[in-house]
């Protein structure tokens, strides 16, 4: 039996994509009442974790199980791997209890990436709903780090309530930039909320991007993405420039277990990020 020591984890992981790699939790951050981020220190030779914005990892809590979680950190900071998720299931709830110094298993990165290269020279509109902001954050880091390459950048973000807004500090920082448009709306609010109330799609008509020269990236619940696509189309964005991130029951992460099949694609392998035009016909098929 081969024992997987830290020094050769990388090598084994490449050949045995089903074997998880133990990573150390560097910091556990509570984002909202039910969402949290884990900052992991990659193990192995290089202490670096290379990924493209939009990719996900299979995270394994010892003894509890494994779930796909998108990477939410800065792709340029390879020594700091960040995931953000909501504590809803057993695994994510157990993950929420992890503290600095604990160990978490990582397999990945898997899946396709947001089209940051294709978007160069164009306006970029990012539409996020709920926890869907997490997989888009690496894109924003990338866009802002390479600000000169892009036209207008707009983030349209819908959350449930003001308390559910993710990454508040980061958003504040971005809000103060003049080269970054940000619109946030919540589904319901009480008290002192001075921002927008209403669904995220209502932000689309008024955000200042050029529909003919833009790339749109959407991440959120499927129904929100469906409505968003309609609204973007209404503004004249062509569907091959709209990208969506899909979600299904991913188990292996490498397209070999069949659980995340969506028609002719496996989401873990062919997605999770798709050009909308590629899956438009699958998008509204029931129980596919």
């Amino acid at each position: 039996m081969a024992t997987m020591s830290d020094s050769k984890t990388n090598e084994i992981n490449l050949t045995e994509p089903m074997i998880t790699r133990p990573f150390r939790v560097n910091r556990a951050i509570k984002d909202t009442h039910d969402t949290f981020s884990l900052e992991l220190t990659p193990s192995g030779n290089s202490n670096k974790f290379d990924f493209a914005p939009g990719q996900f990892n299979m995270l394994y809590v010892f003894g509890v199980g494994e779930v796909p979680i998108s990477i939410s950190g800065d792709p340029a900071k390879q020594s700091k791997l960040v995931h953000t998720t909501r504590a809803v299931g057993n695994v994510t709830k157990a993950m929420n209890k992890l503290k600095a110094g604990d160990t978490l298993g990582v397999r990945g990165p898997f899946g396709t990436a947001w089209p940051v290269k294709e978007a160069e020279g164009e306006d970029v509109v990012l539409v996020a709903g709920g926890i869907g902001l997490a997989p888009l954050r690496p894109v924003i880091y990338h866009l802002l780090a390479n600000r000169g390459q892009y036209g207008k950048i707009a983030l349209l973000y819908g959350a449930r309530t003001p308390e559910d807004i993710l990454f508040q500090k980061t958003l504040e920082k971005w809000r103060s930039r003049f080269d970054f448009e940000m619109y946030i709306t919540v589904d319901r609010a009480t008290g002192n909320w001075k921002g927008n109330v209403g669904v995220v799609t209502q932000l689309i008509p008024r955000s200042p991007f050029d529909p003919l020269n833009c790339v749109a990236m959407i991440c959120g619940p499927e129904i929100m993405m469906r409505f968003t696509v309609l609204e973007l189309e209404k503004r004249g964005v062509t569907t091959n420039k709209i990208y969506v991130s899909m979600e299904r029951n991913m188990k292996c992460g490498i397209g070999l277990c069949g659980h995340c099949q969506l028609g002719r694609t496996f989401i873990c392998k062919d997605g999770a990020v798709y050009p909308y035009s590629q899956i438009a016909d699958l998008f509204t098929k029931r129980e596919l």
Partner: peptide
Amino acid sequence: KLFEAEMDTKNFRVIEDG
């Protein structure tokens, strides 16, 4: 069986099925 893992206090070790 894909692997076994063992926990010692905070860290776990993965033992591949050979």
